Amino acid sequence: MIINNLKLIREKKKISQSELAALLEVSRQTINGIEKNKYNASLQLALKIAYYLNTPLEDIFQWQ
């Protein structure tokens, strides 16, 4: 199981879903879906999320 901390980290950094989506060149709905565990981010997208949030990938998506 993967624990998804994207919403928590994004909100801590005061970045909206729309802002993050624009940086990543995806839709806001994609970010929303990832945060609600409706969609799994591809490895490429997960790495981009970590880069733009300046946060280690394993802090955003944790295996349990």
Rank of each mutant, 00 (worst) to 15 (best):
residue 1 M to R: 08
residue 1 M to K: 10
residue 1 M to L: 14
residue 2 I to A: 08
residue 2 I to V: 13
residue 2 I to E: 05
residue 3 I to D: 06
residue 4 N to T: 03
residue 6 L to A: 01
residue 6 L to Q: 01
residue 6 L to R: 01
residue 7 K to C: 09
residue 7 K to Q: 13
residue 8 L to E: 15
residue 8 L to F: 12
residue 8 L to Q: 15
residue 10 R to I: 07
residue 11 E to N: 09
residue 11 E to F: 05
residue 12 K to S: 14
residue 13 K to D: 02
residue 14 K to I: 03
residue 14 K to H: 14
residue 15 I to L: 12
residue 15 I to D: 00
residue 15 I to W: 05
residue 15 I to S: 00
residue 16 S to V: 04
residue 16 S to W: 06
residue 17 Q to V: 14
residue 17 Q to T: 08
residue 17 Q to Y: 04
residue 17 Q to R: 07
residue 17 Q to S: 06
residue 17 Q to N: 01
residue 18 S to N: 11
residue 18 S to I: 11
residue 18 S to P: 05
residue 18 S to F: 10
residue 19 E to F: 05
residue 20 L to Y: 02
residue 20 L to K: 00
residue 21 A to S: 06
residue 23 L to G: 11
residue 23 L to A: 15
residue 23 L to Q: 11
residue 24 L to V: 15
residue 24 L to I: 09
residue 25 E to D: 14
residue 25 E to H: 15
residue 26 V to N: 01
residue 26 V to G: 01
residue 27 S to F: 02
residue 27 S to C: 08
residue 27 S to W: 04
residue 28 R to Q: 15
residue 28 R to N: 08
residue 28 R to A: 14
residue 29 Q to Y: 10
residue 31 I to V: 12
residue 32 N to P: 01
residue 32 N to T: 09
residue 33 G to A: 15
residue 34 I to N: 02
residue 35 E to Q: 04
residue 35 E to K: 02
residue 36 K to C: 14
residue 37 N to K: 09
residue 39 Y to T: 11
residue 40 N to G: 14
residue 41 A to S: 06
residue 41 A to Y: 05
residue 41 A to P: 15
residue 41 A to H: 04
residue 46 A to I: 07
residue 46 A to G: 11
residue 47 L to Y: 11
residue 47 L to M: 12
residue 47 L to A: 10
residue 48 K to A: 08
residue 48 K to N: 07
residue 48 K to G: 06
residue 49 I to E: 00
residue 51 Y to D: 08
residue 52 Y to R: 05
residue 52 Y to E: 06
residue 52 Y to S: 06
residue 54 N to M: 08
residue 54 N to R: 09
residue 54 N to P: 01
residue 54 N to S: 12
residue 55 T to N: 03
residue 55 T to K: 04
residue 55 T to G: 02
residue 55 T to L: 04
residue 56 P to Y: 04
residue 56 P to H: 05
residue 56 P to G: 06
residue 58 E to Y: 13
residue 58 E to D: 13
residue 59 D to M: 11
residue 59 D to I: 08
residue 60 I to M: 05
residue 60 I to D: 01
residue 60 I to R: 01
residue 62 Q to S: 10
residue 63 W to Y: 09
residue 63 W to L: 08
residue 63 W to M: 07
residue 64 Q to M: 07
